[in-house]
Simulated scan of single mutants.
Amino acid sequence: MEQGAMRAFRLISGEIWQLSLGDLPTPRPAADEVLIRLRAAGLNYLDLMVARGRLGDTTPPSFVPGTDGAGEIVEIGERVSGWAIGDRVISGSIVDWSAGLPTEANGRRIRGVTMPGSLADYAVVPASALVRIPDGMPYTQAVTLPIAATTAWNAIVKGRVGPASTVALLGTGGVSLFALQFAKAAGARVILSSSSDEKLERARQLGADVMINYRTQPAWDEVVLEATDGSGADLIVETVGGGTFARSINAAKIGGTVYVVGFIGGMEVTMPVLPVMVKTLNILGSQTGSTSDLTSAAKAVYQTRIKPVIDRVFPFEAAADAYAYLASGAHFGKVVVEFE
């Protein structure tokens, strides 16, 4: 490696994407930024969308993929206060969105999508986007918080979930499993669907109350209604999109919330409008969350002693294998890349 250079992955996007490891100049922080020595990167479905060329712009020579990252501060810009070299940190994924609602202006820069991400030795991040890693939490766990935990936390908060609530979850990816753990910490009843009996059993061990195999029971919404004496779930965390959306509407309780966080089943949905009106449903979209939301999610994980569910940890050099494994859909929980 050349002096002043760092290891970094470059991405050639497309339906058959290519990740290649090479060198890039080590970035330097501006006055309001910090330089982070990355120790772990976390992969999300968003990373696959970038890899497939459906989001972001991967053509700039300085672009580095990888949305989530965790590491320690090694250099601080001259106007930064409240942070010190050696602090262990994660960053909000949308770095300029500090709190409140997203706007066009604060939503433009997304790590690993429209700006350099985490599959490199170093990354520059605005100090305002930083969140301290909870004491004792390994980097490989902390790196699961920026997107998956924050999204799940917002679903639970905006769905007003409490001990009398029923929550329905689709699949066993990172968001669904964090939502399961947050919901159980809030005392709620959880119904979870998957195509794998093995994954359903693992979800049961995490606290899921009702398990549905949607391959043997494709009308999973009817199972949700049956399990709730016909009333439906207070919160549906809709991670699939496509053909499941109408079932989510059917499975929701009067006055309930369908929290839309994903589209692995397709970006276009067809849904009946009348039940949305009759049930006075809340259909809420998710843009992950702000840095303030990440702070709350990290605090909730720490205080409730939730252990993030990590399926596999890949070494840095095997990042391409981590992408392929995530794309296979075989994972249960999060896929993480660990730097040596």
Score class of each variant (00 low, 15 high):
M1K: 06
E2L: 09
Q3M: 04
M6I: 05
R7Q: 14
W17N: 08
D23Q: 14
P25N: 12
P25I: 02
T26N: 02
E33V: 03
V34K: 05
I36Q: 10
Y45P: 10
G53L: 00
R54E: 07
G56A: 01
D57M: 07
T58R: 14
S62T: 14
F63E: 05
G66P: 06
V80I: 05
S81M: 08
I85E: 14
R88W: 02
R88C: 01
G92V: 01
G92C: 05
I94K: 03
V95R: 12
V95Y: 06
V95K: 10
W97S: 00
L101Y: 09
T103G: 00
G107H: 07
G107R: 05
V113M: 03
M115Y: 02
G117K: 00
S118D: 02
L119I: 02
D121A: 11
V124M: 13
V124K: 12
P126Q: 01
P126I: 01
S128Y: 01
L130N: 04
R132S: 06
R132M: 03
P134R: 08
G136V: 12
G136P: 11
M137L: 13
M137V: 10
Y139R: 08
Y139N: 06
Q141G: 09
A142T: 05
V143S: 01
V143F: 08
I147P: 03
A152S: 11
A155W: 11
V157D: 10
R160I: 03
P163C: 11
V167F: 04
V167K: 00
L169Q: 06
G171T: 03
V175L: 13
S176T: 03
Q181P: 02
A183Y: 04
A185V: 08
A185D: 07
G187S: 13
S194K: 08
S196H: 05
R202V: 08
R204A: 15
D209E: 10
D209A: 08
N213Y: 12
N213A: 10
W220A: 01
S231M: 04
S231W: 04
I236G: 01
I236F: 09
V240I: 15
G243V: 04
F245I: 03
A246N: 12
R247P: 00
S248W: 02
T257K: 05
V258M: 12
F263E: 10
I264Y: 11
G265M: 09
G266L: 09
G266M: 10
V269S: 10
T270A: 09
V273E: 04
L274H: 11
P275W: 08
V276G: 04
I283P: 02
L284D: 00
G285P: 08
S286K: 05
S286D: 11
Q287W: 15
S290W: 00
D293I: 00
L294H: 00
S296I: 00
A297L: 01
A300M: 14
A300F: 14
V301D: 01
Y302S: 14
P308A: 04
V309T: 15
R312Q: 13
Y323C: 07
A324F: 02
L326I: 07
L326C: 07
A327S: 14
H331D: 10
H331L: 04
F332Q: 12
V336E: 03
V336D: 02
